[in-house]
Simulated scan of single mutants.
Amino acid sequence: MRRLLQKVLDKSQKAPTQDAPGSTASEITPQVMDGVGTGSEAVDNTQAVGTNPIKISSVQRLGFQNASNSCSHRDLGFTGKIAGKWYAVFGDTLWCAPGVKDPAQDLPGFHGMVRDSVSLLTNDPLTVVDLNLNNDSPVKHQLQFVPFNPAWGETNMYGFGGTSLCETDARSGTGAVYYLVNANDAGLIGAGVAKVVVKSGTPTVTQRYDGTKGHWWDAKTTARYGDVAAYRDERSEYIYLLGHPPSTITGWLAASYVYMARVRATDAFDLTKYQYWWGRQQGWKTKVLNVFTPETAVMWGTGQGQISWNAYYGCYVFVHLAIGGGTVHLRTAPAPAGPWSGDVQVYTAAPIDGGLVYAGVAHPYLDASGKTLVVSFTNNNHIEVIKVAFTK
């Protein structure tokens, strides 16, 4: 369907270029076009390239993931490592009723919530240890991970959709978390980054950037970097960020493209050090991307997901549930910026009470060989978990 709405894919490959520093994120004006390229041909860098090597031996549904020391319903659950330990960052975390220890036994009604939370992952993908807990009795509940700041006009109703923790310095136990600021009625405001330091075993947000409004990338003018995925590539120096186009770009087709930025992990808290992907024909530039087309995008129609390196196949794997959700997909690439292959469908979930199924999450730490991959996803505020076994 999408191919019918666009011009012919131009497969020409040119050497990437590096621009001198350009305009800042707040100064750019977004542009969306049918396609750009040489002559009359349009370039679509989101079309599948190559052969996906993934072959499925078996898929096992493991069950639902819950905390061993708290009780809540939650969504998202992106995984990330800091100083050798893996953590999950969840989105909306709905507390269960006071005293309830099993989410399946929760009572009707609203019992309190936070807009995001953090947990320690374990060797059992069905069990996490909730961190940053309050003093509720007899069951403690999670406090908010990315704090709201009244000085920036934020309230406890603001949403902060965080992605994976990305290690910046293992020795000091420091990492970055990327998040999307949602002002509810006012809509999406922007995407930002916060410094995270592991204190007494708990990842703690110690500073949010920028200090005047709480985010770096304005949602009206800039891609929402990090709202699809954030990935600390252990095979390079970089953190890679995937995000949808500015909120001013509307329509199902145009709004479903995904754009990419990167930064050396050691420079994650310096906005001037970020680079932006302008497509395979132009490569990485320090100029902030302001042309949102199939040429400058890396993917289309994936929804939120997660990248990991797979040693078994020797490539990067992106886990996602596509538009509409429900089915887990895996696609592959030789590098985080692609080109990405077509998808292999892995598993289709039955929506709980007709709810949404979304946000694919990889748990690569459970099998370093890459012969299996545990995947979790949100099924109507339940974290459902499967285990995929591969073959060649």
Rank of each mutant, 00 (worst) to 15 (best):
M1S: 15
R2Q: 12
L4F: 09
L5V: 00
L5A: 15
Q6K: 13
K7P: 08
V8T: 14
L9H: 12
K11G: 10
K11E: 10
A15N: 08
P16F: 07
Q18V: 15
D19F: 07
D19P: 01
D34P: 01
D34W: 10
D34F: 12
V36S: 14
T38R: 07
T38L: 12
E41R: 14
A42T: 14
T46A: 02
Q47I: 00
V49K: 01
G50S: 10
T51D: 13
P53C: 12
S57I: 09
S57E: 14
S58W: 00
V59Q: 06
L62E: 00
G63H: 01
G63M: 06
R74M: 11
G84N: 02
T93G: 01
C96F: 06
K101W: 10
D102K: 14
Q105A: 15
D116C: 15
L121F: 08
T122P: 06
V128P: 03
L131T: 03
D136C: 13
K140L: 07
Q142N: 13
V146K: 03
T155V: 07
F160N: 04
F160W: 07
L165W: 01
R171W: 11
R171G: 14
G173A: 00
A176S: 13
Y178I: 04
Y179D: 07
L180R: 08
V181I: 10
A183Y: 06
D185W: 14
A186I: 03
A186V: 02
G187A: 06
G187C: 01
G190V: 03
G192W: 03
V193P: 01
A194M: 05
V197Y: 03
G201I: 02
G201K: 02
R208E: 01
T212H: 09
G214S: 02
W217Y: 15
D218G: 09
T222M: 06
R224M: 13
Y225H: 14
G226K: 07
A229Y: 13
A230G: 11
E237D: 15
L241W: 04
I249S: 06
G251N: 05
G251L: 01
G251I: 02
A255V: 03
Y257W: 11
R262E: 10
V263Q: 05
T266D: 12
F269L: 07
D270N: 14
L271S: 09
T272F: 00
K273A: 15
W277T: 02
R280C: 00
Q281L: 07
G283C: 09
K285Y: 08
V288R: 05
V291A: 09
F292K: 04
V298E: 04
T302I: 08
G303A: 10
G305F: 06
N310L: 06
C315F: 04
C315M: 04
Y316W: 09
F318N: 11
H320S: 12
H320C: 15
L321Y: 04
G325T: 02
G325M: 08
A333M: 09
P334T: 10
W340L: 02
V344D: 02
V344C: 06
T348A: 10
A349D: 15
D353G: 11
D353V: 08
V357L: 10
A359L: 06
V361F: 02
H363L: 14
Y365S: 09
K371G: 13
T372G: 11
L373D: 05
N380I: 01
E384M: 11
V388P: 03
A389W: 08
T391M: 05
